[in-house]
Amino acid sequence: MDFDLPDSALAVREGITAVTAKYGYDYWDRCDAEHRWPEEVWRDLGAGGWLGLAVPEEYGGGGQGLLELAVALETLSRSGAGAAASFIYLLTPGFGALTLSRHGSEEQKKRFLPALARGELETCFALTEPDAGSNAINITTHARRDGDGWLVKGQKIWISGVERADHMMLVTRTVPAAEAKPRASGFTVFLVDVKRAVAEGTLTFQPIPKLGTNTVASSMVFLDDVRVTQEDVVGQVDAGFAVLWDILNPERILAAASGVGGSEAALRVAVDYAKDRAPFGKPIGTNQSLAFPLAKIKAQTELARLMTYKAAWLWDRGEPCGSEANIAKLTASEAAWQAADRAFQVHGGMAYSLEYPVARMFRDARIGKNIPVAEELVLAHIAQHDLGLPKSY
């Protein structure tokens, strides 16, 4: 067994560290406070080729895999971005480039991948609905045949980045759930031209006020006969569940990478403060009541990192990784939350001051326990598929 990262991943870590050196905690605090996308970081990552890591070389990318993408996200998150970093690598390199690299047609790859790799084209992903989230089989957004294409009607919720996206990876039903045999059939994934649909008035969206991760908006999306064609199909008609799983597992793995980096970032803030703060003549970090919880979180973070890398490695090899992806997400999100919570406690009353990044990290880290899948459903999956217990939902 070899636990050393390949040279490609080490080069990614070094490169992302160099890019983020000029963007500290204050930068990410400002972006969050101003509710604005980190344009400067996005531009630098695109110029350096760091957004196209998982795009095949023949389409202008780095020819790397999900492992390198996870290392990039972890490094960006650790630099001070925290959970905000997840959107940079999920929305376009993950949902867009990674999916099209594996499931796109040759025409789609030639048309979209070079621009996605440069950061000149942006994507988002639309699955969740008001009455269907993790129970994706029950989505009701449907595409009905109309001539040589389809008209899509429905509603999505918590769709992040739609206000910036050029195209949306949209999950629809082309066969109603009641008629699908088996129930996981009848899905079709379309790559929707968002700006065209908005201009035509068939796609509208409404941002949802959020507690945190305000560098990108999350919106309600309304689809009213959005026109799509055969050229917009990703994968195969009525067989989109295979595409969906190749979106959801990488989503969990990248979310885990963000949690690992976010935990490291919060730990660094807590440790630095514990070393400097000395109200009784010695640093508060000398107290075991503060030091031991931080040490435990460091151990949890290292374990989460190992599982995240393993899950990404398995996905790159085309091997089953559902359990590993779920365990990585579960452990990394818990580490990130515990680190942010402990950093808050270490700072005492000063944690409430926006002079420190603790409040932002505290707000952002909490959502990781709920998305992209709630930890209760992760535990249910582990209980059923890894322990052999009866299905509980």
Results as ranks from 00 to 15, higher is better:
16 I>D: 01
16 I>Q: 08
16 I>N: 02
17 T>R: 09
20 T>D: 00
21 A>W: 00
22 K>C: 09
23 Y>S: 01
23 Y>F: 15
23 Y>E: 03
24 G>W: 04
24 G>D: 11
25 Y>E: 12
25 Y>L: 10
26 D>K: 14
26 D>C: 01
27 Y>E: 04
31 C>T: 07
32 D>W: 03
32 D>F: 05
33 A>D: 05
33 A>W: 07
33 A>V: 02
34 E>W: 01
36 R>A: 08
38 P>L: 10
39 E>M: 12
40 E>L: 09
40 E>H: 08
41 V>D: 09
43 R>D: 09
43 R>L: 05
43 R>E: 14
45 L>K: 05
47 A>W: 03
47 A>G: 14
48 G>P: 00
48 G>M: 01
49 G>P: 10
50 W>G: 05
51 L>I: 06
51 L>C: 04
51 L>T: 08
52 G>Q: 04
53 L>F: 03
53 L>E: 06
53 L>M: 05
55 V>I: 09
55 V>E: 14
55 V>Q: 07
56 P>H: 12
57 E>D: 09
57 E>W: 00
58 E>H: 01
58 E>V: 04
58 E>S: 07
58 E>G: 02
59 Y>R: 03
59 Y>K: 01
59 Y>I: 07
60 G>R: 07
61 G>K: 04
61 G>W: 10
62 G>T: 11
65 G>F: 08
69 L>T: 13
70 A>L: 07
70 A>V: 05
72 A>K: 01
72 A>R: 02
74 E>I: 07
74 E>R: 14
75 T>C: 01
76 L>I: 03
76 L>E: 03
76 L>N: 02
77 S>W: 00
78 R>N: 08
78 R>I: 00
78 R>W: 09
78 R>V: 06
79 S>F: 10
79 S>M: 08
79 S>G: 13
81 A>V: 04
83 A>W: 13
83 A>P: 00
83 A>E: 14
84 A>M: 03
85 A>T: 06
86 S>E: 15
87 F>L: 06
89 Y>V: 07
89 Y>D: 13
89 Y>R: 00
89 Y>T: 12
90 L>F: 07
91 L>M: 12
92 T>W: 01
92 T>S: 14
93 P>E: 09
94 G>F: 01
95 F>P: 01
95 F>E: 10
96 G>T: 11
98 L>F: 15
99 T>W: 06
99 T>F: 08
99 T>C: 08
99 T>M: 10
101 S>Q: 03
101 S>H: 05
101 S>G: 13
102 R>V: 13
105 S>N: 04
105 S>Y: 02
106 E>I: 06
107 E>L: 04
107 E>G: 12
111 R>Q: 15
111 R>F: 08
112 F>I: 11
112 F>Q: 07
112 F>R: 04
114 P>L: 04
114 P>T: 12
114 P>N: 13
115 A>I: 03
116 L>R: 03
117 A>W: 10
117 A>V: 04
118 R>F: 05
119 G>K: 09
120 E>Y: 03
121 L>D: 10
122 E>M: 11
123 T>Y: 07
124 C>E: 13
126 A>S: 13
126 A>Y: 10
126 A>L: 13
127 L>Q: 11
